[in-house]
Design a protein around this nucleic acid. Structure first.
Lengths: 349, 349
DNA sequence: TTGAAAGCGCTAACAA
DNA sequence: TTGTTAGCGCTTTCAA
């Protein structure tokens, strides 16, 4: 009778004990050799390394973490199921952390506090060294604090009412100021703000920046709120230009979808962009801005920079540094053809 | 002299030893009590549980994993930096795995084989129980195999030439067949396919489905390749309808951006959609389909179902089941206003 | 019913 | 220069 091979061919990963046995040294020596510390003859060190490579040894981070009480992992909790905003942030964050040898657990909480609790519990069980909380919209959210005592937490693209909380956000107000100032600097006198629902903090902040810029330039305001959609942009354009009153010569829109809708609405009316009306959008979402006619000048929130900075700060916090308070990172203006000036790229700061 | 409090307030997480000490039982007893196994007096069990809750005890998964040689984690490696396709997949995948108590490491390899190697190495060090490989486009990719011997690997939205590989993909051909058949069933006779670059496998498969449907309906084909953009859709529409030759009465487009561009192009020419020309897109990307005029009927690849199924299968594979080969999951038709029939939802199977 | 102890894979302190 | 060993936090077997 022939012995059957085991069904599960998954061989156990070699341990440092295996390395030591094959290399005919003690476990301690093998460890020293592989960790490049301690005094050891070059000969032994080389031999151990060779053996390790041969048998495909790879240290078990789990055991290492247990020993060092540092897991070299962090968690990311988001409620942004579509990922439009959080994905670029995540990407840069992950890249920065990976460079440090830190791996990232990604969790989707989809606005459900119960699922968020479970995720957090799981992450704490895995002994994450830090936590990033991010979101679909920048508004304030419930703090995570009391469940994760002493764990470094950073809120990105969202913030929370928590004493020690540290958050990193785009400077919506500054971005809006930049957009409006740009329009004013091109000689536009009647700049209307067509934006999203007032319940969004971002909407209120952008409005603030718009107002400040108008004041600085001695211009009057006109604001219209609606949903975040192209349909609303088209409607707004139609409404604004059918009236007998003073017609705008510029639109600053709360996001690119509204801006694109407005551009289309104007096109339907035979009004030329940018000759008759200049338009600036917000988000610099290329799928939208590039396809619009004409391609849209827009404000970029620099989400990748936000993510990279978040990684940087989290690393510092894990290292024991105390960082708190909210920090808003600059937006920039990306110029395309909807304002009539040439292609270039202005920075807020 | 007053002793200063330590600067780092991060208290070490309580261990089972702490629980045992406070509850005045042995470590073994505490473990048994918390894991609901073994014979134990209800009294002791309750006491241990109470103490554990009081001091905020949470088992250390690292230690647990070390013991069980099961990390309850899996890795996801993607090259889809924008996340348009992989995010919905990831979301459903993560949800399915979380339900099983499995956490997900997310890694972005951005098409760089070297970074992919590093990520994989890190993941293997963390002793992941399984690996998901996903991508921006469904084409074949370099196999991951030889670096991860015996590790359950599943390719999602991509595939690889590897003997034992298991991959899960959308049925592009079936989706295209569904779209084309839908147009034919509405009485359209000259259905033109405006699609993306031929080097995409998805383009070739969709073309195949389109052809099969035409043949089944006794119709002639006409195919145009271009970039995946609205601009190309507009161009194609302009070109097709400026010719003196037979004009199409339907367009099946390779993606929603092309479809939307085509719809706009027709609009510019005064051609009515769907009365004169019916349009079907592909991807069912709501940002595009909803904003188009009229809103676009489109093929949905059911990416969430794909992700959930991938989770399901990976769990089975981790459980020791051998699954291999490629499986294509059905697409569905989402009807809006660009074809002239009422709102409804058809499934491929 | 409860306690003691070995062992998961690794590191670091100490001994030889 | 190399080896031995305790211990990270947990589970499980065996003994009491």
């Amino acid at each position: 009778m022939v012995a059957k091979k085991p069904i599960n061919t998954r061989t156990k990963a070699p341990t440092i004990r295996d390395v030591a046995r094959v290399a005919k040294v003690s476990i301690g020596t093998a460890s020293k050799a592989l960790n490049a510390n301690g005094r050891l003859s070059t000969e032994t060190r080389e031999k151990v390394k060779r053996v390790a490579a041969e048998i495909g040894y790879r240290p078990n981070d789990l055991a290492q973490s247990l020993h060092r009480s540092k897991s070299m992992t962090v968690g990311v909790i988001t409620n942004d199921s579509f990922g439009r905003f959080s994905f670029p942030i995540f990407e840069a964050l992950e890249e920065r952390l990976a460079a440090e040898g830190i791996a990232v657990f990604m969790c989707n909480a989809t606005d459900d506090p119960e699922r968020e609790r479970q995720h957090l519990d799981q992450l704490l069980g895995k002994r994450i060294d830090g936590l990033v909380v991010t979101a679909r919209r920048t508004d304030n959210r419930a703090p995570i604090g009391r469940f994760a005592h002493g764990l470094p937490v950073i809120y990105v693209f969202t913030h929370a009412d928590e004493d020690d909380a540290h958050s990193l956000l785009p400077d919506d107000e500054g971005g809006a100021y930049l957009a409006t100032t740009h329009l004013a600097s091109l000689g536009r006198k009647h700049i209307v703000h067509v934006t999203g629902p007032e319940r969004f903090e971002a909407v209120r902040l952008r409005l603030k920046g718009y107002r400040r810029a108008l004041k600085d330039n001695g211009l009057d305001e006109q604001v219209h709120h609606g949903p975040w959609s192209e349909v609303w942009g088209r409607e707004a354009a139609a409404k604004l230009f059918s009236k007998k009153t003073q017609k705008p010569d510029a639109l600053f829109c709360g996001n690119d979808q509204i801006a694109r809708g407005a551009a289309e609405g104007l096109r339907d009316l035979g009004i030329q962009v940018p000759r008759d009306v200049a338009i600036v959008g917000f988000d610099n979402w290329e799928v939208i801005t590039q396809a619009a006619r004409p391609p849209l000048t827009s404000i970029d929130m620099n989400l990748k920079a936000l993510g990279a900075e978040a990684g940087e700060r989290l690393i510092a916090m894990i290292g024991g540094q105390k960082i708190r308070g909210a920090r808003r990172m600059p937006c920039s203006l990306v110029i395309r053809q909807s304002c009539g000036s040439e292609m270039r790229n202005l920075s807020e700061v």
